[in-house]
Nucleic acid binder design. Structure first.
Lengths: 220, 220
DNA sequence: TGTACATCAGTGAACGCGCGTTCACTGATGTAC
DNA sequence: TGTACATCAGTGAACGCGCGTTCACTGATGTAC
């Protein structure tokens, strides 16, 4: 039983982009690569996508792709980072909007809107669900999603602590993070299973979040 | 711009196993294949795992693997089905145990135990988290996980409807499914991010489920 | 306004490698008599 | 208890293909004068 050559340890992968596109033409090429990758994520899946396939779909040769990305993980990473960014932005807009109008209760009353917003942002992105799933399943990409969730959860925790007049302790951190991750999980669930009624699912999901926080806030 | 050969549509994949192992030796080989696949899912990831790699790790030649599985998806499918089965069994045992002792309230009081049980079952399986993530991310495998969740959610919905003296309507179905999927998502979250305190996270997660169902059940 | 030149962007061709898959085969196991 | 035989299990070798990656290159774009 020869195992000597069976060793294949997961090693760190370069995810940084190489040359940034400067000219107009280059920007189109760069965007074309991301768009092609998103399409192929739907069509062939993360386990079959390749730089060859992406370049071909984007209508360029492979070395042109290598000009901007060192490997396929970097392409997926860029795709994932862009989506996480859109999700974060949606959250922050929602968050700051209702926070500026009142207190935490108002935020709580509008959780459905947040879920719907996140749902829409993810659905609008071609291959949005497949991108999120790839971020989960491919080890070198996991940090992107975790970092995004930690960031958003941190913002939520800060406000909660502020309202309660407490420091951010472990409990508040975990509650915030649980809220964020569960919210995203519900959105994924809605996208994942077409047989589920989206609207009702998001309504129930937001009700769950509301009930979770209801007793925790100081009575008005 | 030639796209004619860039077409690569996701097509249906044979997931059924071929020959069932009959002799002792064959059973060891079969189990060895699954064990090797689980290890490699951790080490190289779902996007790099291959039949060649699995056979080599299992200490057999590739045609021996093909005796039992038509392709790598079938291997992952078997691995995933086994894990889903363990999770379902854990749920059903928990469910029937507390149901036999009393009413739904008792079930609700012990949600933490269910989450912990599910967490343990998944953690015990080598590559448990990676398997679940692969089931999410790889299209030909998605049905396995969805079917499992639908099954378990259906059992929950049936009991809830029974207790309420109502038929299983869309609302109850969605509530049950939301509960199941969210529970699994929380377990995944705990496995995914080592920086989180597992115990506290599962406690908060179960508290969330309890609050969600609390007002819904008929007052004793 | 024209053109020479620097820099940016993309190409064609090539490489070695691991992939999935199949074949005819040898070897191991179990059983009928 | 021994052995012939059927069936089950696993092997060695081979195949064509797409993979990631690199090279020296041609072509496009922008700008200095």
């Amino acid at each position: 039983m020869d195992r000597s050559s069976g060793i294949a340890v997961r090693q760190s992968v370069e995810l940084l982009e190489k040359n940034k596109p400067q000219q107009e033409r280059a920007k189109r090429t760069y965007e074309g690569i991301l768009a092609a990758a998103a399409e192929l994520l739907i069509e062939v899946g993360v386990e079959r996508i390749s730089t060859n396939l992406v370049a071909e779909r984007a209508g360029i040769t492979v070395p042109a792709l290598y000009r901007y990305f060192p490997n396929k993980y970097a392409v997926l990473n860029a795709l994932g980072a862009a989506l996480m960014d859109k999700q974060n932005t949606a959250f922050e807009k929602w968050f700051e909007h209702y926070l500026s109008l009142g207190d935490l209760q108002l935020l709580l009353d509008n959780v459905y809107e947040l879920l719907k917003l996140t749902f829409d942002v993810t659905k609008e992105q071609v291959g949005g669900l497949e991108i999120v799933q790839a971020l989960r399943a491919v080890a070198p990409l996991q940090e992107v999603r975790l970092a995004s969730h930690r960031l958003v959860a941190g913002q939520l925790a800060a406000i909660v602590a502020d309202v309660l007049g407490q420091p951010i302790d472990e409990r508040i951190s975990v509650q915030a993070r649980l809220t964020i991750d569960t919210s995203y999980a519900i959105v994924e669930m809605a996208l994942e299973d077409d047989s589920l009624p989206t609207e009702l699912l998001l309504r129930e999901g937001s009700r769950m979040m509301q009930l979770y926080w209801q007793g925790f806030l100081p009575a008005e």
